[in-house]
Design a protein around this nucleic acid. Structure first.
Lengths: 209, 209
DNA sequence: TAACCTACCAAACACTTGTTAGGGAACGGG
DNA sequence: CCCGTTCCCTAACAAGTGTTTGGTAGGTTA
């Protein structure tokens, strides 16, 4: 037997709960996608990481693309669950930003791989009709952040001498690129990272004179 | 004639200077790489954008990978030319950071495509021996920025209550992700963007009370 | 005119890709 | 014991991949 994929280190669930295995496979797929990039990831690599053969994946999913789809959409669903809770809380501009940043780092902690995939691939996925919901999400995202920033400028809590759109991209990027280096179980908790980031974004890194 | 690639809108240089055409092809290749991702880009797409057939590219380059190599290495060469000039100028910590940020935005302006490629692909290219110079550059990069930040903390111009490594990633990322949305010839010049970014990073976006 | 060089085309190559079809082992319920 | 379900394997498929080989039009040089 030259090839025994069954002999992988994966724990065998004798009585496998149905949709559990599905999420398990999606998790490993997301990990490979994040590490190698979607296009560079072959279904055989995913199957390898899951301890099975390429064709077997098609018992659970009907295409490689639908795996990506499911990974991204479930991530966005959970993200907006958290975001909407913040936005509906009726907080002030500064508190809203603080809550959004904190929530973002929590999502990065929970969906590190999905976030990394989103960052790398979303740009050229938005062309395909199947992934149009990415554009919708992006628009809603911009509306939430930009609106809060503008509210803050009007309220006099955020500086008015800056291009708001530039500020938006600044805050957005600083938060989300963190997914590229963040590793769960590291030195800092998501909340601790959020606090330091907020401190830098709001007050700057220079000593006040 | 079902396929006449010559009829593209490319201007024909009757007497083409040798290495000029090479840079021309590398520029279009970089553009496609940046837009579609390296792995998703086929040599036929590059050839299409250049107005020729796939095989013809191999008169100028000996592989798709060597195109990527040349794009990245020439970018890094020019980047370090600018960086070294700044680092050798004997400036104070704050002035060094300001100069580095400004220089970075200038490089983004000049090498937008190469920067975008670098960001997307560098992570999983560093495995290959051919691209080990990416790791070297990254190390040198970190040493320059982190060293300057630490120097600033010691000198009392940068806050001491922050994790310096976190600050480093913060500053680094805020600057370089800009390449993902920056378009040359936009509203702001690289210098103007650098000024606003520096203002945000150094002094924060909150109103001082 | 002849030899030569540059820059490309045409056609194929070996290989990898995502995907499908059919089969079979394990297991539980009747 | 048979039936159906679950989950995976084996083996192949057509399309697309990077790359090679040989040819050739047009300009330059001698």
């Amino acid at each position: 037997m030259p090839n025994t994929p069954q002999s992988s280190s994966k724990k065998k669930t004798p009585v496998s709960g149905g949709p559990e295995r599905r999420r398990e496979l999606l998790d490993t797929a997301a990990e490979v996608f994040a590490a190698q990039g979607y296009n560079a990831t072959t279904v055989r690599k995913i199957a390898d990481a899951a301890g099975m053969l390429a064709g077997s994946l098609y018992y659970h999913f009907d295409s490689k693309e639908s795996m990506l789809d499911e990974i991204l959409s479930t991530f966005l669903d959970e993200l907006w669950e958290g975001y909407d809770a913040v936005l509906d809380a009726g907080l002030g501009p500064r508190e809203t930003i603080e809550a959004l940043v904190t929530e973002s780092f929590r999502e990065i902690d929970r969906h590190r791989a999905a976030v990394a995939i989103y960052q790398k691939e979303s740009r050229h996925l938005t062309d395909q009709p199947r992934f149009h919901y990415l554009t919708d999400s992006q628009r809603k995202f911009e509306k939430a952040w930009l609106g809060t920033l503008e509210r803050g400028v009007s309220a006099g809590v955020f500086r008015a001498d800056l291009d708001v759109r530039l500020t938006y991209r600044f805050v957005r990027d600083t938060v989300w690129v963190a997914a590229s280096w963040y590793r769960p179980g590291g030195l800092h908790s998501p909340e601790e990272i959020a606090r330091q980031y907020l401190s830098m974004v709001l007050d700057g890194i220079a000593v006040r004179t």
